[in-house]
Amino acid sequence: MDRILSALKALGEPTRMRVMALCAQGDLTVSELVHILGQSQPRVSRHLKLLCEAGLLQRLREGSWVFHRLAPDGEENAFVSKLVEMIPQDDEIILRDRERLGEIKRERAQKATEYFGEIAQEWAEIRALHVGDGEVEKILLDVLSPQPDYDFLDIGTATGRIMEVFSPHIRQGWGIDLSSEMLSIARANLEKGGFNNCAVRQGDMYQVPFSGESFDLVTIYQVLHYADEPLRAIIEAARVLRPGGKLAIVDFAPHEEENLRSQYQHRRLGFSETELSLLCEESGLNISQVRQLPGDPLTVTIWIAEKKDNN
């Protein structure tokens, strides 16, 4: 009862209602909200602080930036989306805010497009060496069998593509990446595609910014070959998996393409089926399936592991 009353009290102010309506459309920084609302930074920050304290918003730090987004619905705050639905979307002020938000999103998308254009050649050259991502994505959906009440995490999300694939089949999804530039691309892609149940935040594969047993499904898609310590990354993925949850690791089989190390900073030239299976087992996971997709010259391997249910 107290939590609901606190939320209603926080929402009972025009500017804070505008903030909630805006954050329902995606992650926003303080400076972006200042621009849209036409108010001072201290005043906007004060409103954000009250909304966060009431459990209506989340603060997500990304380097020197801090994004704000709606708190996800859950047992403790299932009322958040219901409160947002009560905000009149045809209100003149709300409509004006949306127009300014549209300008910000277009600017974001332009910056993301420019950055990705700079690295697109690198991605194209690597992808030409192995099977298409579409084939891998179909297999992942088949073997992981996502459900409407599942929580999903993509570690090293890059452009957010895997979240786009899983979004229609899950309750909510998170993607983490260390690169602010990549997160900008992922955020723009998710917004453009209307994948509102997915979001991104900055995070390290060795220190995933979520509590233990938070997710039903976790993916590490073409990321582990960058890792200095693959075992640490898998242990961390296992930590945030719920008992019975599944981890999918997609990476290359052993190969001799030295240019991937010299030009693209790959730390490992692939992993053998046995090596990665042992790493998963050492992390408290049971390997349930291994699939290999031959390419020329790179073979992609998919490992599916389940977290042991101690009950």
Rank of each mutant, 00 (worst) to 15 (best):
L178A: 06
G245R: 03
R201F: 13
G156V: 12
G203L: 03
D149T: 13
M163W: 02
A248K: 07
A237Y: 15
E236I: 13
N189Q: 06
G203D: 10
P243V: 11
D251V: 00
G194C: 10
R239Q: 01
E181K: 15
A186E: 01
A233D: 09
P254H: 08
N196Y: 08
V223I: 06
E191W: 08
I249E: 07
R232M: 12
K246L: 14
K246V: 07
G203H: 13
P146T: 04
Q172T: 15
M205C: 11
R187S: 10
P230D: 07
A253D: 00
Q222H: 12
K192E: 14
L178F: 10
S214A: 15
I176K: 03
N197C: 10
A248V: 11
E181D: 15
S180P: 00
R242L: 13
E213L: 12
W174K: 01
S180W: 09
I220N: 03
Q172C: 11
L217V: 10
G203P: 14
K192M: 09
D177R: 04
I162C: 01
D251H: 13
D151E: 07
D216W: 02
P148D: 07
K192C: 04
P146W: 02
F252W: 15
L217C: 01
L247A: 08
F252H: 12
T157F: 04
S167F: 03
S180L: 15
G160H: 01
N197A: 04
L231F: 11
I249W: 09
A237I: 13
P209G: 07
A158W: 12
Q207C: 09
A158Y: 14
V165Y: 00
E181L: 15
A158P: 02
A248Y: 10
S179L: 08
P243N: 07
T157P: 03
S145I: 13
H169R: 09
R171W: 14
R171A: 13
G194E: 14
A238N: 02
Y150D: 14
I235S: 06
M182D: 04
I234H: 05
S180C: 06
